[in-house]
């Protein structure tokens, strides 16, 4: 790898080698190890920018948004014909509101589907499971 390419790589992708293109990572590593006079200042500069970028707070998903999206899933299923009706049936069982869905089948029933307490508890469980290393959330709950 040339010095020019190494510097271009770091300028574009930053100092974290995991972000470097996979095909060039080994060559860039080797260059960094053998030409510290060139690589070290560039990496330090890029690392400072990376650190700032990491300070951008990630927005948190509100319970209301999560509920709207889950409700939309049922609604989308309701517009998708037979498969959609299957969605409604299964979601209604999962959310413990089968009576509501049975009443409103064929209507935009999503609003009736989501028992907030149940959905929140289930979504929290999914979030918890997904935070566990090596655990497939869908396998755990599904």
């Amino acid at each position: 790898m040339t010095a020019e390419r190494f510097l271009a790589l770091v300028a574009a992708y930053g100092a974290d080698r995991r972000r470097w293109p996979e095909g060039e990572r080994a060559a860039a590593d080797a260059f960094a190890a053998t030409r510290a006079d060139i690589s070290a200042p560039a990496l330090a500069e890029a690392d400072a920018v990376d650190a700032l970028l990491h300070r951008s707070p990630a927005p948190q998903v509100s319970a209301a948004l999560r509920d709207r999206v889950l409700t939309a899933a049922a609604s989308a299923g309701g517009r998708a014909g037979r498969a959609g009706r299957m969605w409604i049936d299964r979601l209604s069982l999962a959310f413990g509101a089968g009576w509501a869905v049975a009443t409103c089948a064929g209507v935009v029933a999503g609003v009736m589907l989501t028992s907030h307490v149940t959905a929140d508890a289930q979504a929290d469980a999914v979030l918890y499971q997904s935070s566990l290393l090596g655990v497939d959330d869908t396998e755990v709950l599904g």
Binding site: Q122, T138, L141, G142
Partner: peptide, 10 residues
């Protein structure tokens, strides 16, 4: 229409 998968997708 797997509810657990839908919630996992969310």
């Amino acid at each position: 229409g797997d509810p657990a998968a839908i919630q996992a997708m969310v």
